[in-house]
Each structure stands twice: as structure tokens, then as C-alpha cells.
């Protein structure tokens, strides 16, 4: 019996190690290759050295030669900045607008409230992919093509975020608000002064969900930010990948750079993200 258990454990760890390799080898290869020169990448690929960082003696231009070259060839900084402006814009305005809507739907009684909630939830079913053409025409009519406004404004209101906020505010104790009302503060004051500061978890969750979704956005920035100076990092990468001369090391460096912000978010705030999604998932 004990022996069987022992074998089982060995099998378990061997398969886990194998799986780990399957899930990690592309990442390791990307990281390691970004540090090597072109010649070495191809030479090492013929053996398991493909997954080992270059020895100091093998790097001629320094470990970060590819990174420096990639930054010199295309304006990666500008692309990342564009992505940050784009995502931050959506997050800042999105948090305000959606939390207010969620609050309204959770707290106030007014005509058609149920109807609007139904409408908002129904819009969740509309695939954004099916409206991007008319949305593009609209944004063009507004003169917003190749502007941050055009990138941001259409995605401020977010039915999913409204829904999350509403769920959260439904469970929020009413007593605090009552007290503030007696103090003579307006509803708006109550909301921004009392509710918002006490709702940090839900704001964090929504902010992260928005960040991850829009940092990874592809289709909308592709059509709206056609100008080189407006490209987000995802679009910039796509162009960089095809821009001759294609240098594998530089592409790997650019991919690594583009991953860093997401890595930071996940490293520090992962639990909010998973919480947010499982929360809605398990509730139904």
C-alpha cells in the first residue's frame, strides 16, 4: 500500500514537471532569446541550450542589446504610453460612470429602474465585434478617429462593471448613508464621500478587469488608432513583427516589454481579478 502511494506520488510529480515544462517553455524561450544575438538564437535552438541564458562571454553587445535596438527601431515607449493613456482613461471614467449607475440601480427608486437594469444586462449579450463597423463610422462622424477620445469614450460605460457595482452596493449597509443624510449632505456628496471610500475592493476589482481587458484590446485600437503616433502596444507589436528586417531577438525583447505591465498587475493584484470573475460566476 505504502509503496503504491509512493509510486503514485512519483508519477504525480513527474507529470506535474512535464506539464510545467509545456506551460513554461515558450516563455522561457522568449525571455532567454531576447538576451541573445541572432546567430546564437538559431544555433542554440538545435539543442536544449535554447532554454538557457547566454553565458556572459557569449554576449557581445551586452545582455540588453536587443532591447536597446528594439527601442531604437520603433517607438515602443510611445506605444506603451498610448496603451496606458487608453486604459487609464477607460478606468478613471469607467469607475465613476459605472459605479454611479450601479449605485442608482441598487439604491434609488425611480420610474423604469427595472427596465433600465434589464436593458443594461441585455447589452451584455451584444458581441462588441458585431458593432465595430458602425461604431467606427460614428466615431469618424464625431471627428474622433486617431484621438484618445475616440479610443476611450465608447468604452467608458460597461454593463458588466455596472452589474458588479450594483451587486456590491446591494449588500452595502444603509445606516451610514442615513447618518450622512441627517448631517445634511446631498446624495452626490454621500456617494463620493462615504460610499466610494468604503468600496475599495469592488473598485479595485473593476479597475483590474478593465485594465486587463483593454490593455489586451486589439480590434478597436487597430481600426481607430491607425496613425502611427496613436498605436497601442498590441498594435505596435503586430507591425513590429512584420517589419523587415525581422530580428528574432528584438521581437522577443519587444514581446517581453509588452508583458511587463500585465505581469506587475497580476503579481500584486491577481486575487482581485479572479475574485471579480468567480464572484459573478458562482453567484449564478
Amino acid at each position: 500500500m505504502k509503496r503504491k502511494k509512493g509510486i503514485q506520488r512519483v508519477v504525480l510529480y513527474v507529470s506535474l514537471t512535464l506539464l510545467t515544462f509545456i506551460f513554461l517553455f515558450p516563455l522561457i524561450w522568449m525571455l532567454v532569446s531576447s538576451l541573445k544575438d541572432e546567430f546564437q538564437i538559431f544555433r542554440d535552438m538545435k539543442s536544449l541550450k535554447a532554454f538557457l541564458p547566454p553565458a556572459p562571454s557569449e554576449v557581445e553587445g551586452g545582455y540588453f542589446a536587443n532591447y536597446i535596438a528594439a527601442f531604437q527601431r520603433v517607438d515602443l515607449m510611445k506605444y506603451i504610453l498610448n496603451s496606458l493613456i487608453y486604459t487609464t482613461g477607460i478606468i478613471v471614467f469607467g469607475l465613476i460612470v459605472n459605479s454611479m449607475a450601479g449605485y442608482a440601480l441598487a439604491r434609488f427608486r425611480f420610474p423604469l429602474a427595472g427596465f433600465w437594469l434589464g436593458v443594461i444586462i441585455a447589452t451584455l449579450i451584444i458581441p462588441p465585434e458585431s458593432i465595430f463597423l458602425p461604431l467606427y463610422v460614428l466615431v469618424y462622424d464625431l471627428g474622433w478617429v486617431n484621438t484618445y477620445t475616440g479610443l476611450i469614450v465608447p468604452f467608458i460605460a460597461n454593463a458588466f462593471a455596472i452589474f458588479l457595482f450594483r451587486q456590491f452596493f446591494l449588500d452595502f449597509p444603509k445606516e451610514l448613508e442615513e447618518a450622512a443624510k441627517i448631517d445634511g449632505c446631498s446624495q452626490i456628496g454621500i456617494f463620493f464621500r462615504i460610499i466610494v471610500p468604503l468600496s475599495k475592493p469592488v473598485f479595485a476589482t473593476v479597475a483590474i478587469v478593465l485594465f486587463i481587458n483593454h490593455w489586451n484590446d486589439f480590434l478597436w485600437p487597430l481600426v481607430v488608432a491607425s496613425d502611427e503616433s496613436m498605436r497601442t502596444i498590441q498594435i505596435g507589436l503586430q507591425y513590429f513583427m512584420n517589419e523587415p528586417p525581422i530580428k528574432w531577438g528584438q521581437v522577443m525583447a519587444a514581446l517581453t516589454i509588452a508583458t511587463v505591465p500585465m505581469l506587475l498587475i497580476f503579481a500584486f493584484l491577481q486575487r482581485y481579478y479572479v475574485q471579480g470573475l468567480t464572484h459573478t460566476g458562482s453567484k449564478n
Binding site: I96, M100, C185, S186, I188, G189, F191, F192, R193, V196, P197
Partner: peptide, 13 residues
């Protein structure tokens, strides 16, 4: 309007 409408002394808003 949304920005300005909150409590005047409200730092958060």
C-alpha cells in the same frame, strides 16, 4: 456637472 455637483467640502469628490 457630475464632477462639480458633489458636496463642496468633499475631498474625495
Amino acid at each position: 456637472v457630475l464632477m462639480l455637483a458633489a458636496c463642496s467640502s468633499d475631498s474625495n469628490a
